[in-house]
Simulated scan of single mutants.
Amino acid sequence: MSIFTEKTQLAAHRQLFPGLANKAYFNYGGQGPMPRASLDAIVQAYDYIQKSGPFSNGMNAWIVHESNLTREAIASELGAPVQSIALTEDVTVGCNIALWGIDWQSGDRLLLTDCEHPGIVAAAQQIGRRFDVEVDICPLLATLNEGNPASAIASHLHPNTRLVVLSHILWNTGHVLPLAEIVELCRQHNGSKPLLTLVDAAQSVGLLPLNLTELGVDFYAFTGHKWWCGPEGIGGLYIRPEISESLTPTFVGWRSIVNDDEGKLVGWKADARRYEVATSAYPLYAGLRSAIATHQQLGTASERYQQILEKSKYLWQRLSELPNIKCLRTSPPEAGLVSFELSEQKKHSALVNFLEQQGFMLRTILNPNCVRACVHYFTLESEIEQLLKAIVDFGV
């Protein structure tokens, strides 16, 4: 019997997450609840820092060791070389490192999709204003249930398009884009300069099984606080090793550089560490590693993803049976995000507020106007049934 269908094992695993004790949680796409091991690791690390430093030669060596362990844990999960991982605070910081590190020229073009997060849209628009870059928008929302996203992107490329910015999983609809196909068409694009890809991986890391080396993407920005259920404030950026030298660091600090024995600057770090800046909340690193290790206790990334698919399909099917509810997808979800509309869309916020009062955590999305529920591999079928009953009780 699978460990995922063995109720006692799954129940024991859920006990590792204190945040699941008093609520039915459906908001992993916003932030995941941390396992107890992560909370304990963070406290223990802060205690160690105070007892051993907090600033000393020994502490500096500990920080280097913690950073290396964290890059190794991340790289192993993402199928990437350790030297390709820069530690950041979150997805937005990672995207900004890539966006501002390109040597933009007047007349260049940047392609966004119409399903990107407002933070990334704002950063791209600022690039446009600062460097006289044209920001184009590709309408991917229309391809949710029909059409090929890769073809849509291809039709919006120009000879001077230098960067395509898109999400691996769209945060509003849960659509999983054919990233390998999109990366390949960008690689084959016959433009005036190489066409790069920057991926917002907020919803894919910790959800999809990943091998970034095989995907061939240029930049992959992610966070630890969503599907990995780690602490907020720790994320990263994957930079394809072959293009690392072409990206210029924008924010620079002591972690970015190499000094000689006399303390004089001699150059950049030789790998993705050149995009790290200065002092961070290092105890969070242990918290993230502990979260990753907690998930690994209950199967491989592929096994966990299969469970997410089964749970999201079940939620999608059951929602589709309710009157006055329309799921955005007309086929089973390919990720853990299930977005749906009420016949009276003005009631979306009222529904989410009502559900929260009953102990069910969901969220609204503004574009498209909908409600989003997220399921993880350890979401229970009974929780889904309780959620459906609460929605009916609301009076949809």
Rank of each mutant, 00 (worst) to 15 (best):
D40T: 13
H156M: 06
N60Q: 15
D47F: 03
W228S: 01
V252A: 11
C374G: 08
E181K: 10
L208E: 04
D261S: 15
Y282S: 12
L328V: 01
Y285A: 04
S151E: 07
S349K: 14
K264R: 14
V338N: 04
V375Y: 03
A73P: 00
I239K: 11
Y46R: 15
A350W: 10
L198G: 04
T70F: 02
R363C: 08
L315V: 11
T248H: 10
K226G: 02
I169D: 07
S320W: 00
S312V: 06
P231A: 04
L16R: 05
L157W: 04
F219W: 03
R289D: 00
L198Y: 02
G107C: 11
T88E: 04
N324S: 06
N96H: 07
T143H: 02
T70M: 01
P241T: 12
S331Y: 03
A301F: 02
V217R: 05
T161R: 09
E232H: 09
R318Q: 12
Y46T: 15
T279Y: 15
E276M: 14
D260N: 15
F340S: 07
M34D: 03
S382V: 06
A272N: 12
I292V: 00
S151A: 10
E6Y: 15
I239R: 10
H348K: 08
V43T: 14
I97Q: 02
F251P: 14
I169Y: 01
T92S: 08
G19L: 01
P81W: 08
D47H: 12
P18M: 10
K193N: 13
L10Q: 14
S67L: 14
V266C: 13
H13D: 07
W227C: 00
H158W: 11
G206D: 01
I234G: 03
V43M: 14
T161G: 12
S244Y: 05
R372N: 04
I153A: 09
L87V: 05
G19Y: 02
D271N: 14
L215G: 11
P241V: 06
L362A: 13
